[in-house]
Design a protein around this nucleic acid. Structure first.
Length: 741
DNA sequence: ATTAGGCGATTTTTT
DNA sequence: ATCGCCTAAT
């Protein structure tokens, strides 16, 4: 859609124009996939500004920061630089911004920390340990997700406790209560609090609410189908005075019920605003007739939906191709060879291709095949930069610096680098801190008073506390990036990693350097910004936000991450019962419908060509499993589909057109797309790329090495490899990402 | 009392 | 690959 002109309203169809021009009063836009929803939103905002609405009176809530950034760019092209003053971003990031200003009214300090799921889980585990609740019996992760669920429905701990029926819920209720006080004590909020606390703020302080109601006279919400009840309540409150609320969404693309998204939000909109104008966008500009028809055949199996009649004037296009493969490796290899083929046929570069899957675990096999063939790719999500351990360690230091009360972050780094502070010493510290009612860092500063600590532990604690005090004092004098560099230098993380001297530690060191540059860059680009600003920004980055789509690379992503995106050619892999739809026990109708919507989202990402693939044998949870075809494959009429039985071919390479095996002169001679034929698994001698003792492999970090021994098989296959550079390593083949030479 | 190193379990989707 | 948990070494 980016290619379309954006300059004039006359390029919009009548429905879109209506959605743009109806600026007064409540509006709900039901926008089918590819119906130009983003264009409508950008034009609507530009239109508001053109008729004299100041940018800071417009609140535009998007699903990702990336979407907000792109939209801002497009609005800038329409109306100029004043677009920069729009309040546009995710619920989480805009409300975090609002809380920075207002949080003291609800008992937080402005420098509050934002805890991600990992931080929350650490806190929950700590609480459970202190309360002697066995983690084997009560899974901390399950408890965390229950607590999050409760918060998404804005149930307070006492309310949740009242509703608890079984022992698990009773335990959860108790932990939930302690969790909330723990967060507050540490001046920290989790993701859910970023929504919930503003709601409490508005409900408890009508003057504050009134201020923001007057401020945000025009409210727009994108991806409305995936908002939860708290978000719904926030929009309702903020919009109550002027009622200029415009929500845009598609019930058929609601895929976050597991996270609290509530379809009632769409239905209740009509109830809350009986005079709401409902506008349907049903013309699709994205996909071929074939793809759109298939999508419609899929979604009409859902009973729970608002029917839409989507149509397109695009060409009929190619049939949808279903690939039936022997196993997951063959599936991956087939996809790779088809990418090669299609990119030549359609004359598009690798950025036009996406491979989608239901679970992150599926990416590994696909990555292997891509890497073997020298096809460059990016993964959206997975282990991203800001999730890496060394990055989180450095950020934890910065978070304590910004917010001394942040105990979770302090505990993360209290003994990294090793300072001789183990469990026993930390227990004493925690005890002291709760006795005195002061935070952990202040307790550390007074470690001398703590009975039962060794002299060396006392010294370590006070030195650590002094370190934070010193840099806190410096923060007024030097720039953020100087401050951070000096502190990390003194802490000695870089030296520690250097001394370790392994290739992994060198890579980690690189990452830390990269983080330091990122901070400098941020400080340069945002003059007057503080450490808190930077930390807030990185805490709220989503997977898609971190996706750099400027390179010619194949994109790998989950179906969830694919929302809002489009690609000329889409592969959806793993169309198997249990995987897509995903289930481990018999699936209920509600869950099945959500799985179907997820599938629908994937199908409707495709512009020109859609491939659906499945494998008969898949390695899952360390076992070989026999997979049957997904019921979703049967939901598309046979007339729209051609089925290729890759597995059944005696010589798969014969029919599946192959690029030359030698990587000589294709048109784009500098990119080596392909080096191996699709793997035929099952027999012993057809695996030239199999690991064998005495063979050579290459590891991303360790470099080249020789295989000394192999043991186990399948998921548990282990290899002993001698690397001249890095020494002898015991590797789990499944994770080591070895390239066979 | 702390730490390093080995072993087993673990994977639905995520702001 | 990473985490928690265990044991042996310091």
């Amino acid at each position: 859609m980016r290619t379309m002109q954006e300059s004039s309203l006359s390029d919009l169809n009548p429905r879109q124009q209506e959605a743009v021009k109806t600026v007064e009063g409540p509006v709900m836009v039901l926008a089918g996939p590819g119906s130009g929803k983003t264009r409508v939103l950008t034009h609507r905002i530009a239109h508001l500004m053109r008729i004299g609405v100041p940018p800071y009176s417009i609140l535009a809530l998007t699903f990702t920061n990336k979407a907000a950034g792109e939209m801002k760019e497009r609005i800038t092209r329409l109306v100029g630089d004043q677009a920069a003053r729009l309040w546009m971003g995710t619920f989480h990031s805009l409300l975090a911004r609002l809380l920075r200003v207002e949080c003291e009214k609800i008992g937080f300090q402005k420098n509050f920390s934002i805890y991600d799921a990992q931080d929350s889980l650490a806190l929950i585990k700590r609480i459970m340990k202190a309360a002697n609740i066995p983690a084997q019996q009560f899974n901390p992760a399950a408890i965390r997700s229950r607590i999050s669920g409760a918060k998404n429905q804005s149930l307070s701990p006492p309310e949740y406790a009242r509703l608890a029926t079984d022992p698990f819920e009773e335990k959860t209720a108790r932990i939930y209560a302690e969790y909330q006080t723990g967060l507050k004590r540490q001046n920290a909020m989790d993701f859910d609090d970023l929504l919930l606390l503003p709601l409490e703020l508005f409900e408890g302080h009508r003057a504050v609410l009134s201020k923001y109601q007057d401020r945000f006279r025009f409210i727009l919400v994108d991806e409305y189908q995936d908002t939860n009840r708290v978000q719904y309540a926030l929009v309702k409150l903020l919009g109550a005075k002027y009622r200029n609320v415009c929500v845009v969404g598609d019930d058929a693309q609601s895929i976050y019920a597991f996270r609290g998204a509530d379809i009632r939000n769409i239905l209740d909109f009509e109830r809350d605003y009986p005079d709401a104008k409902i506008i349907r966008l049903e013309q699709n500009y994205r996909s071929t007739k074939t793809i759109l028809a298939a999508a419609d055949q899929v979604i009409k199996n859902n009973i729970d939906q608002m029917r839409k009649d989507l149509w397109t004037s695009n060409a009929a296009g190619d049939l949808i191709t279903v690939l039936e493969c022997e196993d997951d490796r063959q599936e991956a290899a087939t996809i790779v060879s088809l990418i090669y083929e299609e990119s030549r046929k359609l004359k598009i570069d690798l950025s036009g291709f996406a491979i989608m899957y239901r679970t992150n675990a599926q990416s590994r096999t696909l990555e292997d095949a891509l890497r073997r063939s020298g096809v460059s790719y990016v993964i959206v999500g997975g282990i991203e930069f800001y999730q890496r351990k060394e990055i989180k360690d450095v950020l934890a230091y910065l978070r304590v610096l910004a917010n001394n009360a942040d105990g979770e972050s302090l505990l993360r780094v209290v003994n990294y680098p090793p300072r001789g502070l183990g469990e026993a010493a930390l227990n004493r510290l925690a005890e002291f801190s709760s006795d005195k009612g002061i935070n952990l860092l202040d307790s550390a500063a007074r470690a001398g008073e703590i009975a039962g600590l060794s002299a060396s532990a006392k010294r370590s604690f006070t030195e650590l506390a002094a370190l934070f005090k010193k840099y806190r004092g410096l923060s007024a004098e030097v720039s953020v990036s100087e401050l951070v560099r000096a502190m990390i230098d003194e802490v000695g993380i870089l030296t520690l990693l250097k001394e370790e001297g392994t290739p992994e530690s060198m890579a980690r060191r690189e990452n830390v350097h990269e983080l330091l540059s990122a901070i400098s860059e941020y400080a340069d680009q945002h003059s007057g910004s503080t450490l808190e600003d930077f930390l807030q920004e990185v805490s709220l980055l989503s997977d898609v936000d971190q996706w750099d789509d400027t390179h010619a690379e194949v994109t790998l992503l989950t179906l969830h991450a694919a929302k809002g995106l489009e690609f000329p050619v889409v592969f959806i892999s793993g169309l198997e019962e249990g995987l897509l739809p995903f289930y481990t026990s018999p699936i209920g109708p509600k869950d099945l419908e959500e799985e179907r919507r997820l599938y629908y989202v994937g199908v409707t990402r495709a512009m020109r060509k859609l491939y659906l693939s499945r494998a008969r044998i898949r390695y899952r949870f360390g076992d070989v499993t026999f997979q049957s075809a997904s019921r979703f494959l049967d939901e598309i009429e046979p007339s729209l589909v051609e089925t290729v039985n890759v597995a059944g071919r005696s010589r798969p390479q014969r029919r599946m057109p192959q690029p030359a095996r030698s990587q000589v002169g294709t048109a784009d001679s500098d990119s080596r797309y392909f080096s191996d034929p699709p793997a035929e698994t099952g027999s012993d001698f057809d695996q030239p790329q199999a690991l064998r003792i005495g063979g050579f492999v290459e590891h991303e970090i360790f470099g080249r090495g020789k295989i000394l021994d192999l043991s186990g098989n399948g998921e548990t296959l282990k290899a002993v490899v001698d690397f001249p550079e890095a020494g002898r390593k015991n590797l789990l083949v499944r994770y080591a990402r070895l390239k066979i030479l």
